[in-house]
């Protein structure tokens, strides 16, 4: 126990030289093991565990006592929770438990996909903008313009122009997040490119693409990972909001936003129809945010001392 420092070793020199460049996983040593790591990072442990459970629900949705989430039974409309229907039934008699469990798939898929799409697009644009001066100006002005449009409204406008599908929802949400990723990556690159090791690579005759991919990219990844987690969380909320106001996933897909939208009419008398997807969504987003906070503390020791 006493061999293990509770805080990462003091790296004053490194922090002053490159505040954007924390050492990746400074506390992870093979001897400490996974358990020790999780104990020292409770946010990652809690958020990660909940997320793994949800992922399990999403993957094995068909084997968790669910029935067809689209099966209509008009004779059993808006029943309260019972041993037969754990979460009750909705206005057209569909089993709410099954719908909520299948809804996990939509939420996780949208969250992860948006985080991936926005990160990769923003990363590519940010790397290029940070390194090539003549690209920087025009590209960043377009990004400023995109950032001036409130994200949900941008997604609404895009969804109004396309046929509703989960894939289109992912793209509509991701577009609003690209400029934010792009700015983050660009600022990492701008501070990195002034550092001696990049200068060294230039002197050694490395080509620009090689410098970007081999030297700059790995060092810009840490802050991006944290950002991607937050994007995932907010994308899940945005998907639910879009579905809720009728601009999201098609109505036949059991997404949590859709279930809530359908439950709105009856909500004053049958609040459980909205409550189950609402609680599921909140827990999921909370888990992802916790994971993000944990990663931030881990990857940026400066914020860990603050938080």
């Amino acid at each position: 126990m006493n061999r293990e420092p509770t805080r990462p070793p003091d790296r004053v020199g490194a922090v002053i030289a490159a505040p954007e460049m924390p050492e990746i996983m400074p506390e992870f040593s093979p001897r400490a093991g996974v358990i020790g790591f999780l104990r020292r990072n409770p946010k990652i442990a809690v958020g990660g565990t909940i997320l793994l459970l949800l992922l399990f629900c999403a993957v094995f949705a068909g084997f968790l006592g669910t029935v067809d989430p689209g099966a209509i039974a008009p004779s059993r409309r808006a029943r309260p929770p019972s041993p037969e229907h754990w979460f009750g039934t909705d206005m057209i008699g569909r089993d709410l438990y099954s719908r909520v469990v299948y809804g996990t798939r939509v939420s996780l898929f949208v969250g992860f996909s948006v985080a991936l799409v926005a990160s990769f697009t923003g990363l590519a644009i940010g790397l290029v903008a940070g390194f090539l001066k003549w690209v920087d100006g025009p590209v960043m002005r377009v990004m400023d313009g995109l950032m001036s449009i409130p994200p949900i409204l941008l997604a609404v406008a895009l969804m109004a122009l396309t046929r509703g599908s989960v894939g289109n929802v992912v793209i509509a949400i991701a577009i609003a997040d690209v400029p934010r990723v792009c700015r983050l990556v660009r600022s990492s690159v701008l501070s990195l490119r002034e550092l001696p090791f990049i200068e060294g690579a230039v002197t050694a005759g490395s080509s620009t693409p090689r410098i970007i991919l081999r030297h700059v990219l790995p060092n810009a990844l840490a802050p991006l990972t944290v950002q991607a987690t937050y994007i995932c969380a907010s994308a899940m909320i945005t998907e639910a909001i879009l579905s809720f106001i009728g601009a999201g996933s098609p109505p036949d897909i059991p997404s949590w936003g859709n279930i809530m939208a359908e439950g709105r009419v009856l909500w004053q008398v049958k609040p459980f129809i909205i409550a189950f997807p609402a609680v599921s969504l909140s827990i999921t987003v909370l888990a992802v945010n916790l994971l993000g906070d944990g990663l931030r503390d881990l990857l940026d020791p400066r914020s860990a001392t603050k938080a």
Binding site: A240, W267, P271, A275, A278, L281, V285, L286, N289
Partner: peptide, 22 residues
């Protein structure tokens, strides 16, 4: 305060809306 902040970020507008209305 920090726990409240995480909750604020995690609870979607309409979830809070229906909760406080209820």
């Amino acid at each position: 305060v920090m726990v409240m902040a995480v909750l604020g970020f995690s609870l979607p507008v309409f979830v809070v809306g229906y909760l406080v209305t209820y």
